[in-house]
Nucleic acid binder design. Structure first.
Lengths: 216, 216, 216, 216
DNA sequence: AATGAATGAGAATTCATTCAT
DNA sequence: GATGAATGAATTCTCATTCAT
């Protein structure tokens, strides 16, 4: 598990993990629907089925709860993306699978992803960098795959940063605008169209042929 | 000016406008840097050079201040986008110019745009739809241009909604990730690359030729 | 009036003074009977006939209330002692009158004096020095008078610091042990006996003669 | 050991004593430096190397810990003063030795003595009398010695209560104002000067001669 | 219209105390 | 006997909102 700097008064590490999960689950739900500031510790405790005081055995301040919630999302990215492309050697396949996986993780954590957009700024600077560092790490996976595709002549020599963020925004976009997309598209369709749109323009001729094969 | 439902106790409409501008200017600055909840009415009043009590002569609740702030941003979009493409007849040119203009308005209102992402959910549902309606209207401008391009055989028959949002996210992305882009790209480069990436893949052969011409 | 560093959100200086007096009066009573920590801001507000929120318009933290209370006592010393000996030229008379006055001020602020003993340590270090500085200033008045007496050959060359504190403790002792003395002595008797005991031993022969004269 | 009414859930009397000493030692240190209210049971338990729960096996409430701490101080007085004058028959010697011993016990328990001044009022009335009774008992030792001195014509017929408290305050004063005295005087000098000042004035001629002899 | 003092409900946080293990 | 996780009452402090001037 990826480390958190949130310190607890409780010794038993397994218990800490269990309780934090309980708290984070409740908090994610409430923060997502009502926002961080409208949610009280009492709300969280009640939904988690514990006492308000207990929360403070596992967290030093309310903001730590938000940190834990956001860490859970970015950690999900940081774990599932590498897993999705593990074993794949074809760089274009690695790229498309990574984006595909990204979209699916986002979908599973849709509200938490939106929450991250809304609430990262509610964190203190030190806590904020923890999140942004994780995010940057995730993006590197995409960027690396793009670079590999370029190296193998499958993609034109585009600006990697821009394309990376464009693909990241494809994934995030599904969460950010789900209220709009949900009634118009399935997730599969969204991924398919978005990837085509984003990539076809920058694929080389080789890449284009390859892309058709790669799309199952 | 586009109507607001925010009612005031003050009669003199010109005064209302002047005072609200004062308040909104101060609030935009504070909300952007500290967020909605961390900003107090007293903060706003002090920065605006008025008394806390005065604010309540022009606004019914604190949330109304946020609404006014967000309306100002989305109204800027709703005004500047049509203006940017006014007089242009070529549909592809209309599309690229619209996106270009969108990015530039976003750049000028960068922090307020991010604020909109962060804080729209802090609004009550009724107020929220006011904002989302404006946003949808803005998007229609893009969507219409896309449809025109398709009708004239410049773009393939892509999913219009998805492409629209992809382009919208290009614009918003500049604000959302400016902390990342700022050190890597100029706005012009960003627009150029993003448009190429997003469009080239969906342009028809005709469209492609045309696109080269259109890019100044 | 001697300045306080406790800052207020309210402009009108006269109002600030009035409100603070209200608060300090209530707080003195409650702190004395229940102690600082057992007394809540709500208690103080209720006794002062104001709302809890109002207190925080005139004080930044609860500890500031304690500071104001203690300042009031030490300021009373700092004002009344000099006043009591003003115009007197005979050094022995100055000394005895100063101690006499000290005892009487203590008597009037008996519970607040005890409070100072009990609660000065409840203050943060910065606030504590404010009190201790005032106290040292008061003691200087006694010490100066002793030095004058020595200079004029009325007192032996005793250790001035020790005698000063002995006399100070005479005054404070009346407050600290009032539960014991009250049923045994009047204040006048206490002052008379204490002064005799403390001084007669250190008076020179001249001083002794003089002392008999001075005691009215 | 002098009895306490603090009841324990634990049977084994020796264990009770050992544990309580552990707790009291930790508590004395913490109460002295941070005060009673700023010290938590957890703090005490940690410093004593036990669990918070354990404290409650030896004490019914937090206030009992304070009572035990204060009892330890006043019991020290009640034991050491009689010991210091045991075997001495000369009343003036008994008196000076008692005061001397008092000052030295106070010096050894300086912070706890100050604590007693600060915190006795934090006790419930019933517990408070337990402390005050012990204190009165200690004072009787001084008062008895004074009476003996008077009976033997060594001291003038002063008010015994006042002189007693003056001498008690000499001892306590060393603790109360140590922050002031420490840099100016040694304990020996303090005792010497204070005793002279306090006694010389009330000694008879016989007493005075005697006093010179008694001072080693 | 404007001010700014006053209100009081509400939130985060602490900690004495309990109790299952 | 000992532990330490859990409880929840109590407290400080903030701030949107009101209202007398």
């Amino acid at each position: 598990m990826i480390v958190t700097d949130v310190t607890s008064h409780v010794e038993d590490q397994e218990l800490v993990e269990r309780r934090r999960n309980q708290i984070v689950a409740a908090a994610t739900q409430l923060f997502s629907s009502q926002g961080f500031y409208r949610t009280t510790i009492k709300d969280i405790a009640k939904l988690a089925g514990v006492s308000p005081g207990l929360v403070y055995l596992y967290v030093r301040e309310k903001e730590d709860v938000l940190l834990l919630v956001l860490l859970q999302v970015v950690d999900a990215y940081a774990q599932e993306l590498p897993a999705a492309i593990e074993g794949l050697t074809d760089p274009l396949q690695r790229l498309t699978r990574a984006v595909d996986a990204y979209c699916r993780v986002v979908d599973r954590h849709r509200s938490a992803t939106v929450l991250a957009y809304r609430s990262t700024k509610s964190l203190s600077p030190e806590r904020r960098v923890l999140i942004q560092d994780r995010e940057t790490a995730t993006n590197s996976i995409i960027a690396d795959a793009i670079n590999d595709c370029i190296a193998e002549g499958l993609l034109n020599r585009v600006n990697v940063d821009v394309l990376t963020y464009q693909l990241v925004l494809v994934a995030h976009g599904w969460a950010l605008k789900s209220w709009y997309f949900k009634s118009r598209l399935t997730l599969d369709e969204y991924i398919d169209h978005s990837l085509s749109n984003a990539l076809v323009g920058v694929l080389t001729d080789d890449g284009r042929t390859h892309f058709e094969t790669v799309r199952s």
